[in-house]
Design a protein around this nucleic acid. Structure first.
Length: 501
RNA sequence: GGGUCGUUAACUCAGUCGGUAGAGUAUCUCCCUUUUAAGGAGAGAGUCGCAGGUUCGAGCCCCGCACGACCCA
C-alpha cells in the first residue's frame, strides 16, 4: 500500500489515474486482490453468443457460463449496470443487478473501471432490444487498470500514439486488429501453400560476415568474443543457394531482413520477406507459381481474387497477369524508343531533368533502370511481370541463353510497386566471380549499395549448384495490398520510431 | 537530406484581431433496475511539444530544436 500511495504521489500522473490508484487502495482494504489469477474461465464471448444465438426466453437460462475479458463500456443505473467485456473472440454484454449479486458485491463492483479485466459467472437472457446478455451471478476483478483507455467513440487517431502504444491501438481500433489477423492468416496460408508445393522451410543466418544477396546498405554490428565485424542480413539468398548445393531441392524461408536505408510509407528498416529456391526450375516456372500463390492468398484471405487497393480494383485472378520484357516496357509503357533509351547522354540528361540523381560513370543499364522507375513502374497497377532485366544490374541472375546482355529475371509489380524479384540462378562460378568483381569495382567507385565479393559463396558454387530458380516476395507489401493499407507501418506491429525524450 | 502540415486535459478536437484556457468523452459526487455514443444535475482536471525572442501582455507573431504525418530526393 505504501507503494500505491507513492504511485499516487507521482507528479506526472493525471488526476484520473491518481483517482484510480486511490480506488485500488479501497479495493485492497475491502480484501480484494488487484491482480488475481484464480478465476476459471470456461467460455469465450463468441462461443457463448454462438451457443445461444437461436434461443429465446426460458430456453436461455439453463446454462451457467464463466467468461473473462476487459471492460470496454459501462452503463450504470442506480441498482443495475450494463457493461461490455471484450476477449480475443469478441464482445459480450453483461448485466449486473444489485438484487442478484448482493449489496456488498454490487458496491465493490461499482468501484471497477473501464479497462479493468474481470471474470463473470452467470446465465444468458435477452434484453428488451433482444441483445443476448449475460446476467452476472458474480463479478470478479482479475486485473486492475489504472490508465485510461481512449475515447470510446472516436478511438485513437494520433498515428504516433497508435504505433508507439500499439497495445492500446489493438484494444480500441477494430481495423488494426483486423489488419494483423489478416497478416497472420496470409503468412499461415503462404506457408501452407509452399509446403503443399513440396518446399521445406529453413532458417539461415541473420548475422553474416558478408551481407550479400541484394544491392542494399547493411546494418553492421560486432561480436565481442570473436572480436569480429558482422552485418545484419539484407537477404538470405546466398545461404539458401548453398542449401541447393547441399542437396535440398526446394527450400523457403519467411523471415526478417534489415536494410540501412531511408524510412517511407513503403520502407521499414526491418521487413519480412519470403525467399524460395527451386532446383531444376526456371524463372517462367516462378511466374506460374507466383500467379497461383497470389490468387490463392487473395481468395483465402479476402474471399475473392479481385481486391480493392486505395480505390483501385486489382485483379489477381490467374491468367489476368501481364508479362512484358524490361525493354518492351520502356517502349510500350514508358513511351521511349530504343534510339533514346540506348543513348547514354540523352538518358542521363533526361534523368537529371526529372530531378533524379545521376552518378558519374554509372552504367547505361543503371540509367535505364532509373528511367524504368520514373516512367514505367508507376503505371504498373495491375499485376505485371517485367522480365529480362539487363545483366549489369542483375549480379546474381543467370544470363539469357539467346542474349547474354539480359538475364532470365523478372520483377513483379502491382499498384505501381515492386512486390517480388525472381530469376533463374547464376550457377557458373566463373561468371559469378566476374560479376562480383564488377560489383566490387562499382563499390570502389562510390556505390555503397553494390555487392561485395563473397569467396565462401563462390567456393560453394564450385562444387556445383543444380540449375535453379529463386524468388523473393516482400511480405509487408503483400499484406499492404491485401489489407488496403497505404503505409507499411500499418501492417508492422511495432514499426521503428525515434525515441521521444 | 529538402518542402508542407501537425503537436492544446488521459482520448477526440475548438480556440476570433495578441488581452483571465474551452467542449465532448473519460473521471468524481448526487438521481436512476433493460441500457448500448444510456440519460439528468453538479464538480474537478492543462509544462498549450521543448527552448529562446518580440511585446505592457504570447496557445496565437518571430528564431531554433524534438517527434510525427504527407510529398519530393
Amino acid at each position: 500500500m505504501p507503494m500505491l500511495e507513492s504511485f499516487a504521489a507521482r507528479d506526472e500522473l493525471n488526476e484520473v489515474v491518481k483517482t484510480r490508484v486511490v480506488k485500488s487502495c479501497e479495493l485492497l482494504d475491502a480484501g480484494l486482490r488487484l491482480y488475481s489469477n484464480t478465476f476459471e474461465r470456461l467460455h469465450d464471448a463468441a462461443g457463448v453468443l454462438a451457443e445461444n444465438e437461436l434461443k429465446e426466453g426460458e430456453a436461455l437460462g439453463g446454462q451457467v457460463y464463466s467468461v473473462a475479458g476487459r471492460i470496454m463500456a459501462l452503463r450504470s443505473f442506480g441498482k443495475a449496470t450494463f457493461f461490455h467485456i471484450m476477449d480475443a473472440s469478441g464482445r459480450l454484454q453483461c448485466y449486473a443487478a444489485k438484487e442478484v449479486i448482493g449489496d456488498e458485491a454490487y458496491s465493490t463492483f461499482r468501484k471497477l473501471d473501464i479497462g479493468d479485466i474481470v471474470g463473470v459467472v452467470g446465465h444468458m437472457f435477452r434484453t428488451k432490444t433482444n441483445e443476448l446478455t449475460l446476467e452476472c451471478h458474480s463479478v470478479m476483478l482479475l486485473t486492475k487498470s489504472i490508465r485510461i483507455l481512449p475515447d470510446k467513440y472516436h478511438g485513437l487517431k494520433d498515428v504516433e500514439i497508435r504505433y508507439r502504444q500499439r497495445y492500446v491501438d489493438l484494444l480500441v481500433t477494430p481495423r488494426t486488429k483486423e489488419i494483423f489477423r489478416k497478416r497472420i492468416k496470409v503468412v499461415s496460408e503462404f506457408r501452407k501453400f509452399m509446403e503443399a508445393e513440396g518446399f521445406l522451410e529453413v532458417e539461415t543466418p541473420m548475422l553474416q560476415p558478408v551481407a550479400g544477396g541484394a544491392t542494399a546498405k547493411p546494418f553492421s554490428t560486432h561480436h565481442n568474443a570473436l572480436d569480429m565485424k558482422l552485418y545484419m542480413r539484407i537477404a538470405p539468398e546466398l545461404y539458401l543457394k548453398r542449401l541447393l548445393v547441399g542437396g535440398f531441392e526446394k527450400v523457403f524461408e519467411i523471415n526478417r531482413n534489415f536494410r540501412n536505408e531511408g524510412i517511407s510509407t513503403q520502407h521499414n528498416p526491418e521487413f519480412t520477406m519470403c525467399e524460395f529456391y527451386w532446383a531444376y526450375a526456371t524463372y517462367t516456372d516462378l511466374m506460374d507459381i507466383t500467379e497461383r500463390l497470389f490468387a490463392h492468398l487473395a481468395q483465402s484471405v479476402c474471399g475473392s481474387t479481385t481486391i480493392t487497393y486505395q480505390g483501385q480494383e486489382i485483379n489477381l485472378a490467374m491468367g489476368a497477369w501481364h508479362r512484358v520484357s524490361f525493354y518492351d516496357s520502356l517502349e510500350k509503357i514508358g513511351g521511349h524508343t530504343p534510339d533514346f533509351y540506348n543513348d547514354y547522354t540523352a538518358v542521363q540528361k533526361y534523368i537529371r531533368q526529372r530531378g533524379e540523381k545521376v552518378i558519374e560513370g554509372e552504367k547505361l543499364a543503371k540509367l535505364q533502370a532509373k528511367l524504368f522507375d520514373l516512367d514505367v513502374e508507376p503505371k504498373l497497377i495491375q499485376p505485371h511481370f517485367i522480365y529480362h532485366y539487363p545483366t549489369d544490374i542483375s549480379p546474381l541472375s543467370r544470363r539469357n541463353d539467346d542474349n547474354p546482355n539480359v538475364t532470365d529475371r523478372f520483377e513483379l509489380f502491382i499498384t505501381g510497386r515492386e512486390i517480388a524479384n525472381a530469376f533463374s540462378e547464376l550457377n557458373d562460378p566463373v561468371d559469378q566471380r566476374m560479376r562480383f568483381e564488377a560489383q566490387v569495382a562499382e563499390k570502389e567507385a562510390g556505390d555503397d549499395e553494390a555487392h561485395s565479393m563473397d569467396e565462401e559463396y563462390l567456393r560453394a558454387l564450385e562444387y556445383g549448384m543444380p540449375p535453379a530458380a529463386g524468388e523473393g516476395i516482400g511480405i509487408d507489401r503483400l499484406i499492404m495490398l491485401l489489407t488496403d493499407s497505404p503505409s507499411i507501418r500499418e501492417v508492422i506491429l511495432f514499426p521503428l520510431l525515434k525515441p521521444v525524450n
